[in-house]
Nucleic acid binder design. Sequence first.
DNA 1: GTCTATATGGAGATAGAC
DNA 2: GTCTATCTCCATATAGAC
Lengths: 236, 236
Amino acid sequence: MKSVPKPPAVSLKKSTTRAAGDVTRERMLDTAEECFATHGFHGTSMRDIASGASTPIALVSYHFKSKDNLFDRVIERRASYMATRRMNALQEARTAAGDKPIALQTLIESYVWPFVERSTRGGPGWKNYSQLVARLANSPAWTPVISKHYDDVARAYIAEFRRSMNGAADASIYHAFSFMVGTMVGTVAEPGRVDSLSQGSHTTSDLEVVFRLMIPFLEAGFNMIRKDARAKRDLA
Amino acid sequence: MKSVPKPPAVSLKKSTTRAAGDVTRERMLDTAEECFATHGFHGTSMRDIASGASTPIALVSYHFKSKDNLFDRVIERRASYMATRRMNALQEARTAAGDKPIALQTLIESYVWPFVERSTRGGPGWKNYSQLVARLANSPAWTPVISKHYDDVARAYIAEFRRSMNGAADASIYHAFSFMVGTMVGTVAEPGRVDSLSQGSHTTSDLEVVFRLMIPFLEAGFNMIRKDARAKRDLA
DNA sequence: GTCTATATGGAGATAGAC
DNA sequence: GTCTATCTCCATATAGAC
């Protein structure tokens, strides 16, 4: 498992210790992440972020220039970690499968698990981030920023799904992938409606339990589409 | 099929014809619906709505009092139609099934189809409305307003799913229902990422095609959860 | 890097004439 | 019911002292 190299212990900049501004920046990013996840881009003001990070408002502009840019940085900050996790999982699955196509269950788990895992075990920052990304996923206004950071990995997975789907139509594969994403983000964007529908007797908050239900659910769906494709081919 | 009674041909108010304000109100609701769907609640200003409806801003406040109230009215306007469509479909399925549980495919179609049908065939107003509701579904800040208008019907369906799921755990049924909703709203909230992922060669915009793929996908998922429940019971 | 003060514009809501 | 004019507050962004 290829790991990202650690940054050098001593900064290359003038100071030998981490600049004070860096920890301030991170605090602002954390606060912005939380506000954007809870109230959305337009529902969050620069003042909200500044006061949440206990810093004067001018300092937010100083570090991030504009609100749009700050939003981009929030999304960007954890995106490459997610991409690496998913690509590593995909590579492991390829190696284990040898020449054969990867099992659908493995493929689905490899894509969904890193996102679910960070959401449950990554601490409050990751929790906010995953919910923010989940909510962005259904908002066309933000499709460009999501695409920028998530499409490359998604395309790698779709290529692998194509191998595993036994000649299913290309459109079916894209749609099935989209169903998977919809199911995943609907779960991670908790608290969802399970809580209100069941009047509190059930909840999506234990994501690992939901994950163990989601995988066979999705696998059965993909399998059905694959079998339908085979049936159609056998008729021809 | 129980139908909503028509309003009397002659208004009970002073005027014998429909008040001019009513058509203005509808125009404002249409514009608000579109703006909220595209830019969200906080991304839409009362001025946007007024100028889109070609009316002075004060008139929007006059008719709807506050922006929050206007938003509620937008959601409310088409919610009861959706509820009726879904409950009628459920009732027909019950009648057709007699004493037996309703087939999972029928149950899923009855819930998903009215939403998809209105989105594709209901004209631009319904298109905007369904996309707005779809995007709200993953936003906890708006869960109360969605719950107010959609939970009763959802609970009726869940009760019926319980009968058809062969003794699956209650939690599994709620989660499967939530997976279905996630898949549905991810599809209706187009343009989704299928377009960008496939670089334009595929699209979710023909919702009826996607619907015909979605139903077997979801049915297979529900079936898998049902079978798992039976397997566990047989072991005991 | 940090902070106070402020420039400039847009927000929601309302008063009051017609 | 409609519209002009306006009140009050909050938004993003920046200038310039320390």
